[in-house]
Design a binder for these strands. Structure first.
Lengths: 337, 337
DNA sequence: AAGGTTCCCGTGAACGTTATCGTAAGGCGG
DNA sequence: CCGCCTTACGATAACGTTCACGGGAACCTT
C-alpha cells in the first residue's frame, strides 16, 4: 500500500571517518591522510587504514567533504538541446571519460537562451561543481571569464572568451572550406547557405562567403538564410532561399538537420537532389548516412570531442594551464552533393 | 599566461546565513525558517528576511544544507546509452520538468551493464540525491527495492520491482499487438522478429509470439533473432533470420535502430521493402519518418515519458505513495510495412 | 651526548546549515 | 490579577570532514 505518510528514509546508520579511525586504531586525521594521499603517512598504516575502510565499507560524506573543500566530485555539462542529435554523441564521450575519473556529470539544457545559460552558471557555482564544460551560444564573454574564475571551465565550439578559460574547437573554417570547395569542384557556381541562428559562432557563414569571394563570386547577404537548427527550419529556409534565388544549384547548411529539411523541401518543390540541387550538411550525425540520398556532410568526431573536452578539463583540474585545442573535421562525400 | 601553479579559486567571500541574520536583525534560525517555510514565523519578519536575502544575494550552501538534511537538490537519471536516439528525447523531458522544480539532473550512462548499474546506484546514494529515475536493464529487482529504500525511485519501462518503487511503463504489449496485427491485416503470414538483448523486458517478444499463436501460427523460437539495439546489429540479425527462414515476408523489430539495420540489409540482399519484406519498428525515433521508405513503427511519446517520470518522482518527493503509470503507444503506418 | 631534522601522527577548530529545546511576550478564562 | 496556553523567536548542539598546528620518537650530525 505504500507509505501515505510521505517518504521516510530508512534509519540506516552511517559509518563515519571516526568509526574507521577507531577500528584502525588511529586518529581521523590519519584516515583522511590515507584516503587523500596528502600529508605524510607510513605505508604500513596507510594500508591498514585502507583495509579497514574496505572492511567497513566506509564512504566519505560528499557533503562534509564539500563543506571543507568547497568543491564537489561532480562537474557540469551545459548544452543547448540534448534532443539535437549532435549533442548525445558528445555527451557520451564526456560521460565515458568522466566515469573513468570517478566524476559525476550534471547536464544543463539551455535552449541557447541567455537567461537559461546564466541560470545554469549560477546553479553550477552554487553546487560547488569541480569544473564545467559548456556549449555556450548566448552568454557574453565577460560572464564566461567570470565563471572561469570560480571554477575550471572549458568552452566548446567557441573561441576562448579570455584568460583562464580553456577551449576545444572544431575547425569550422577548414570544414566549411572543404565543403564549399567540393561544390565548386563539382561545377556549381550558384551557391546558397542555410545558416544557424545568428549567434556567437559566425565562422561557417564567414568562411562560406570568403570562399565564394575567392572564386570571384561575391554574393549578397541574402544568399544566406537563417533559422534555428532543426529539420523543419531547414525546409522553411530552403524555400525562402529558392524564392529569392531560383537559380541556386547548391546549398551548404550549418548542420545536418537543416540540410535534411532542405532535401525534403527541395523534393517536395519538385527539384531532384543532387541532380538539380546539391546539398551539403555539417556534423555527420548518425542518420546522415542512412538517408536517401545519403547526405554529403562534414564529419566531426563528436565522441572524440566529448572525450577531449573532459581531458582538457581534467588537466586543468590537475593544475595545468588552460589549453586550446583544435579538432579537424573531414568532408564525407555521399549522394546528396 | 594562465596559472601554472594549479587552479586556485578566487578568494571571493561567501555570504552566509549569519550575514543575513545580522543585517535583518534576527537569528539565523529565523532566516532558516523564512527560507524553508517551516516552523512558525510572522509574515512581517519573513518578508523582511526574504528582502535581505535578495539584497545580499545570499545563496545557501548546498553542502552545509546537505550535511544536515542528508539530501541534495539533485536527482539522478540512469540510462543505458545517451547516444541511442530513444534516450535524448526522454532526457529532454526529464530536464525540462526538473528545471521547473529547480532540480539539477546528473546522468549515469550504464551500457545496460550490471556492474555499471550497480556502481551508478552506489554513486547516487553517496551523493545524497533527492531521488532517482532509472532505465535499469540488468540490475535485479532486489537491488532496486534496496535502492528504493534509500531514496525515492522511479523505474522506467520496467515493471515495478517491489514495494515502494514507482514505475512508468509504456504499454509494450499493446504496441506490439498493434504492430503485429497490422502485419497480419496486410496479408502477411510468415513473420520474424528481431529482439533486443534478452534482459528484463521480454514483453515485446512474448506478445509477438502470443499474437502469432492466436492467429494459428505458433512458430519455433528461432523466428526470433536477438541482438543489441543498434543499426549494425539489426542488419546482422535480419541476415541471420533470412538464412534460417527465407520464406519470411514481414519483420517486427524491438526498436527502430534494429529495424533500420534490417531495411538496409534486406535491400543489400536484393529484397525490396516493403514489397518483398515488410518491416515494422518500435519507438518512432526522429529519423524513422525521414528514411526511405519511411519506417512504419510504434510511436511512443518519449518527451512525455520523461515529463511523466519526473512528475511521478516529484509526487513521491512530496510524500505521496508510489504510483504506477502506463503510457499508451500508437502504431504509425508509413512506407516500410 | 646534546641539539637539530625528519618523519609520523594526534588535537582542536572550523566549514554553514537545520533540529531541538528553551523562553519571553501576549491573549484569555477564571 | 494570576496561571495557562499559544505564538514568535533565539541559543545551543550537532552533521562529518579537512586544515593548521603541535608534539613525540627516531635518526643524524658534530
Amino acid at each position: 500500500m505504500g507509505d501515505a505518510e510521505g517518504w521516510a528514509p530508512h534509519p540506516s546508520v552511517r559509518v563515519t571517518i571516526d568509526d574507521v579511525a577507531r577500528v584502525a586504531g588511529v586518529s581521523r586525521q590519519t584516515v583522511s591522510r590515507a584516503m587523500n594521499g596528502k600529508g605524510e603517512i607510513s605505508a604500513a598504516t596507510r594500508h591498514r587504514v585502507l583495509a579497514t575502510i574496505e572492511e567497513l565499507d566506509y564512504r566519505p560524506s560528499a557533503f562534509a567533504r564539500g563543506m571543507r573543500t568547497q568543491r564537489a566530485g561532480t562537474l557540469a555539462l551545459i548544452l543547448s538541446d540534448i534532443a539535437n542529435p549532435f549533442f548525445p554523441a558528445v555527451a557520451r564521450g564526456v560521460f565515458d571519460a568522466a566515469a573513468g575519473r570517478g566524476l559525476a556529470v550534471v547536464v544543463h539544457n539551455t535552449d541557447a537562451d541567455a537567461d537559461a545559460e546564466r541560470e545554469a552558471t549560477r546553479s553550477i557555482v552554487d553546487s560547488g561543481a569541480a569544473g564545467a564544460i559548456g556549449f555556450f551560444e548566448a552568454l557574453d564573454d565577460e560572464s564566461l571569464v567570470a565563471l572561469g574564475r570560480r571554477l575550471p571551465l572549458v568552452v566548446a565550439d567557441r573561441r576562448a572568451p579570455g584568460e583562464g578559460v580553456a577551449s576545444v574547437i572544431s575547425d569550422f573554417a577548414a570544414g566549411t572550406r572543404a565543403a564549399v570547395e567540393h561544390l565548386y569542384a563539382a561545377g556549381h557556381t550558384r551557391l546558397g547557405m542555410l545558416d544557424g541562428v545568428v549567434g556567437v559562432d559566425p565562422v561557417r557563414r564567414q568562411e562560406f562567403l570568403a570562399v565564394l569571394t575567392e572564386h570571384g563570386h561575391p554574393q549578397p547577404a541574402d544568399h544566406v538564410v537563417t533559422g534555428p537548427p532543426t529539420v523543419t527550419a531547414g525546409a522553411a529556409a530552403v524555400r525562402e532561399l529558392l524564392a529569392r534565388h531560383p537559380e541556386v544549384t547548391a546549398v551548404f547548411a550549418f548542420n545536418d538537420l537543416l540540410a535534411i529539411g532542405a532535401v525534403r523541401a527541395l523534393r517536395e518543390a519538385g527539384r531532384r537532389v543532387p541532380e538539380d540541387v546539391a546539398v551539403v550538411g555539417y556534423d555527420d550525425i548518425t542518420m546522415a548516412a542512412l538517408l536517401d540520398p545519403p547526405l554529403t556532410t562534414v564529419h566531426t568526431d563528436k565522441y572524440e570531442l566529448g572525450r577531449t573536452l573532459l581531458d582538457v578539463l581534467a588537466r586543468r583540474l590537475d593544475g595545468h594551464a588552460a589549453e586550446h585545442r583544435l579538432l579537424s573535421p573531414r568532408l564525407v562525400v555521399r549522394g546528396s552533393g
